[in-house]
Nucleic acid binder design. Structure first.
Lengths: 217, 217
DNA sequence: GTCTATACTCTGATAGAC
DNA sequence: GTCTATCAGAGTATAGAC
């Protein structure tokens, strides 16, 4: 399909138009964002925009492809720095969270606006997300292979718990809040690891208590 | 403001129009849902709909109020059945999750479409959500008061982790999947509790391993 | 590749008869 | 309270000059 090929090509570069569209999608949602807004913000007219992306949905698809590609790459790079299974989980979570709430807009758009895709584009997104999930399952299964994890818990549920909590972070995190992006990732990884580890497996991090903060369900 | 008063009154009853609107908002999103679709599904014409809710946003506000009211009531009732802090957390999580992914549409709409509110309505929603958060903080702090919890972790972060994971469940849960709603709640509560408890505090549940399942980030 | 200008559809909301 | 009929505006996408 020529559609996804075009999108992939553009996603691999760093099209500023895509960045602008992504920011608007994140701020106002895909449906509430108009192509006129995107064109305005990009310093173009709607007609010119249409030359590069023939539909609004094509922009979304390009962002989704870019988002998952970036996340996959970031997680792969992050875990390469460690062999300890807890360390790998913690670093992978840091990488995911950094992209989601700090460094990139594409993975946010993927997670929260990707459902606006339809037909083939939607199916394509599902495939890409499944592959990203498999990357995480690999990390967790490798940890289980060391024998340091309890065996009475489905690791898919662990992944869903961890990534669910991480993804929801985008709903409440503020850069001016009490915690940095990495601190949230470490706290989540630590809590989950202690729940996952065999009784007696030594905790790895010592967290220092900090003042309370953080609203939203 | 007459707007929120009207909405509150309707939310307290069980308006079938609201139920229908909520289902469409959940399925297609607030922005992508048209008043004509709602009117069609309700067996009314747009003009008649307008007699009851003067704007589409007013329907959303009514749903948000209903969603948080229902969730608050359900959690309060659930924790009343137990005194053990872990039990209370587990039962509260069950109640939240049941409404979110099984029994009601309003809390889903609140969490995922509430951001489409504007102005006073948005501020109103934020107040309501803060109050709901406070209910959860109370549950967690009571648990900490028993001395059975680690003291090196910010309980607000624990709430955000737990409710974040729970809320994200709506993205992947399927009634035909391997786990029931309650089983997911129990597994999450168990994992988190083991991460939270003082080393040596006895686990409460024994989970039985089940076949893997569950996609989506 | 970007512009001007526009076609066509659908949107939320309203007015007023019944 | 519900209907019929309709408005004014905004939406995406297009055609064609430059």
């Amino acid at each position: 399909m020529t559609k996804s090929t075009t999108a992939a090509r553009i996603a691999s570069s760093d099209d500023p138009v895509l960045e602008i569209a992504g920011r608007l999608f994140r701020k106002n949602g895909f449906d509430a964002t108009t192509v006129r807004q995107i064109a305005d913000a990009a310093g173009l007219l709607p007609g010119s925009l249409h030359y590069r992306y023939s539909t609004k949905e094509e922009m979304l698809l390009a962002l989704v492809e870019r988002g998952i590609a970036h996340a996959t790459e970031a997680v792969r790079l992050a875990v390469a720095d460690a062999t300890d299974p807890f360390e790998r989980m913690r670093l992978a979570l840091r990488a995911h969270l950094r992209l989601l709430i700090r460094d990139d807009v594409a993975i946010y758009v993927t997670l929260y606006e990707g459902r606006s895709l339809s037909g083939d584009s939607w199916a394509h997104m599902v495939r890409l997300r499944d592959r990203y999930d498999a990357l995480w399952d690999g990390i967790l299964h490798a940890a289980a292979g060391t024998g340091r994890l309890r065996r009475d818990i489905d690791l898919s549920l662990v992944r869903l718990l961890l990534l669910g909590a991480a993804n929801w972070t985008a709903q409440w995190f503020s850069p001016s809040g009490s915690y940095s992006c990495d601190e949230v990732a470490d706290a989540y990884a630590d809590l989950l690891w202690r729940g996952l580890a065999q009784p007696g497996d030594r905790p790895v991090l010592e967290l220092t208590p900090r003042r309370r903060r953080g609203k939203s369900v």
